[in-house]
């Protein structure tokens, strides 16, 4: 199943706000797609402040999946995104396989979506009841549960834990379970200065995300892989695409410069255009 992306730059989950905020800086329709923040079945208030701290070349974040719940989200945020003309991938997180299946059923009934991204390892959720995907077969179970309840043509992206030791095995397991693509590179498990569970994102994690990508592509050369983790420039994107990734997701870089995704998309397009010779 093709992801049918107009270009290889997507907004990573949780870094594009509701979309409206980002649209002030970039025409969302000019991007390859927009992955929404992760939504859950019930509303989640999210973590207590401070939620984000700056670290060397990175950000430690403990948003803890704040979202209005899937129903409110579908009613209030998705229609605007669809109208903005971008390809919308909804990121989901569940507390159980049953919740993942229920989320898939509701999203499967929503017209216009480009796909579902299954967030298999939110590192800041800590002990807050998110289904534990520690082992590759857990990840595969989640993807199978989602796949089973989605219309056949709707792509499933599996966003993998950025663990170089297990990521290749997990990629193979989720692809076998019906995922159409793997997103390689999620925030790393980290901690806030007060010890609360957090995710670490930004340029600081790029080398590790790159290692995860090479592990996956070595083990599963025909995998459709989307690279994510610290990508901030067109040069970074070219590196991962030369290695075999079909697209990139831009996340924390947008928090530093909200024009990053749009700029990458146009720079990559200019470079790919044979009519424009690069000096």
């Amino acid at each position: 199943m093709s992801l049918d992306l107009a270009n290889p730059v997507l907004v990573a989950a949780g870094c594009g706000g509701t979309g409206r905020d980002l649209a002030a800086y970039t025409d969302l329709a000019s991007l390859g797609g927009f992955v929404t923040r992760s939504v859950t079945l019930a509303p989640r208030p999210g973590g207590s402040p401070p939620r984000i701290v700056e670290t060397p070349s990175g950000l430690a974040h403990a948003i803890d999946l704040q979202n209005p719940g899937v129903d409110q989200f579908l009613a209030l945020e998705v229609p605007w995104l669809l109208q903005a003309g971008t390809r919308v991938f909804v990121s989901i997180v569940g507390r159980s396989l049953g919740e993942y299946a229920e989320l898939a059923r509701r999203l499967g009934r929503t017209p216009g979506l480009a796909g579902i991204e299954v967030n298999l390892s939110p590192p800041d959720a800590g002990s807050s009841g998110v289904f534990d995907v520690r082992e590759p077969f857990h990840a595969a179970s989640v993807v199978a549960a989602v796949r089973r309840d989605l219309p056949r043509g709707l792509p499933v992206l599996a966003k993998l834990r950025a663990d170089p030791l297990r990521v290749a095995e997990t990629a193979r397991a989720v692809l076998d379970a019906g995922a159409d693509a793997v997103v390689v590179g999620n925030a790393l498990p980290a901690a806030m200065p007060d010890g609360r569970p957090a995710g670490l994102s930004g340029p600081a994690i790029r080398p590790l995300a790159l290692r995860c990508l090479t592990q996956v592509l070595e083990a599963v050369p025909d995998a459709t892989a989307i690279a994510c983790g610290g990508i901030a420039t067109a040069a970074h994107a070219r590196v991962v695409m030369d290695l075999g990734a079909v697209a990139v997701q831009v996340g924390a870089s947008l928090l530093h410069d909200p024009t990053t995704a749009g700029r990458l998309a146009s720079e990559l397009a200019a470079a790919a255009d044979p009519g424009e010779d690069q000096p």
Binding site: G17, P49, E54, L255
Partner: peptide, 13 residues
């Protein structure tokens, strides 16, 4: 305390 200041990150609730 802000991170992105643009509404993207939901850090400053």
């Amino acid at each position: 305390p802000l991170t992105c200041a643009t509404g993207l990150c939901h850090g400053c609730v």
